[in-house]
């Protein structure tokens, strides 16, 4: 537990991006997204639209979900264009 004496004066936060220590993935209630690789056209729209940076991309190719931070909103599944009408992201029941 951090006390007031440990906090820099003026509520200055010195460590950039320290919010990464908070794993918001625990917020997911009912659903989690699932990536179906064979339907993925690597358009990266899910990467762009994800409010929680939970889509990993490497060298322009889409990778797995980062369930540590995904809050399960489902925007990626709605916006996924998929391949020939088959979505590359579907929402499935959350397993804890």
């Amino acid at each position: 537990m951090i006390g007031w004496k440990d906090i820099p004066p003026g509520m200055v936060i010195l460590e950039a991006g320290s919010a990464m220590k908070i794993k918001t993935g625990s917020w997911r209630a009912a659903y989690r997204p699932k990536w179906i690789e064979e339907n993925c056209i690597h358009c990266l729209l899910c990467w762009l639209y994800c409010p929680d940076n939970s889509v990993k991309v490497k060298d322009g190719k889409r990778g797995e979900f980062d369930y540590d931070y995904c809050k399960g909103c489902g925007i990626c599944a709605v916006e996924c264009p998929g391949k020939k009408g088959n979505k590359a992201i579907v929402m499935e029941e959350e397993v804890k």
């Binding site: 991006g17 918001t24 997911r28 990266l44 409010p51 940076n53």
Partner: peptide
């Protein structure tokens, strides 16, 4: 998006905006 995805996103995950909020996407 291919080029942009190689850039660092200067607004990290772990923020406490609601699930499905559009604000972090706009900031990104």
């Amino acid at each position: 998006l291919k080029e942009l995805s190689k850039q660092e996103i200067r607004f990290t995950a772990g923020h406490r905006l609601c699930a499905g909020c559009a604000a972090p996407t706009v900031v990104k």
